[in-house]
Amino acid sequence: MIDSKQASEALTDIEDTVRRVRQSQIYEVSSLVLLMWGVLAFVGNISGWFWPRYGLYFWFAVYAISAVGLIIISAYHRSKNRIRVFDDRYFLTFALIAAFGIFCCYFGHFTPRQQTAFWPIYIMLFYMMAGVWFGTAFLVIGATIVALTLIGYFYVPGLSLLLWMAVVNGGGLTLGGLWMRRS
């Protein structure tokens, strides 16, 4: 028979393993979302650079495609792991985050350039908050993209900021997704 110290160590081992499994599941589904968003952010910024007049419409399309993508990823994950990832509460949360972002842009009278920097920084804020709870990968990805976005905002002139953001935001999310997949 073992003593209470050894029993306590065994329970700690169990808790640690369970925490790793949960984190691995979160990373698995998040990596797919990040890869999808990486491609969409790249396409959205590049399209805006080619056709600046229609930038807003491209971003509406990006958000619509991402909503469909989330439903597909959720269904795929559910069929594989029997865990429901995104339900109505998640979509309502995303809608509230987007609504508050629009609210800020409208009442803050943000210029297109400011909006180009605002949205990634705003979204990455939630990634960093997720990092506090679910794993440092979110924190690192969020902080890196925020830092690079600010560098672009202050030092990359004119429309070139969209190219910078295509690489930084699109590329950053894609690399982050691949990194999470391997973690």
Binding site: A10, D13, I14, T17, V18, R22, R82
Partner: peptide
């Protein structure tokens, strides 16, 4: 009770029934 087998069982038990790793 063996440490590695305990981890294996802990990991598998963290999943829904009939879902494997």
């Amino acid at each position: 009770h063996q440490p590695l087998r305990l981890k294996i069982m802990a990991a598998l038990n963290a999943l829904p029934v009939e879902v494997g790793l």
